[in-house]
């Protein structure tokens, strides 16, 4: 499945495989694949890095995701800049 993310800067444009965080439902967990957009460096420093596991706690009024022990409120525009893949279930 190939989807267009809204990424403007750098690598992401060509590698937009998978789903964006904005497509996840409440309670879903996923693994971050690629982060792009203007908030990239900030998201990294909060621990949203490729390989990290995120859990969507709620989706309205903002997306609330937990990564590690950090909870972040993200708007839809930021979420579409985060490409995720299914969490491997053992």
């Amino acid at each position: 499945m190939r989807r267009q993310t809204r990424c403007r800067w750098g690598l992401c444009r060509n590698n937009a495989w998978g789903r964006s965080l904005a497509e996840l439902r409440r309670g879903e967990k996923a693994v971050v694949e690629i982060v792009c957009g203007k908030r990239k460096a900030l998201l990294y420093s909060y621990g949203i890095v490729p390989g990290s596991e995120v859990e969507v706690l709620q989706t309205f009024p903002l997306y609330v995701v937990r990564v590690g022990q950090t909870e972040l409120g993200l708007d839809t525009a930021v979420c579409t800049d985060i490409v995720v893949s299914e969490k491997n279930t053992v």
């Binding site: 203007k38 908030r39 909870e71 409120g73 993200l74 708007d75 930021v78």
Partner: peptide, 12 residues
Amino acid sequence: GDELLSVIEIPP
């Protein structure tokens, strides 16, 4: 102005 992109840390 630039698009607003919210990243809000929610502390405990």
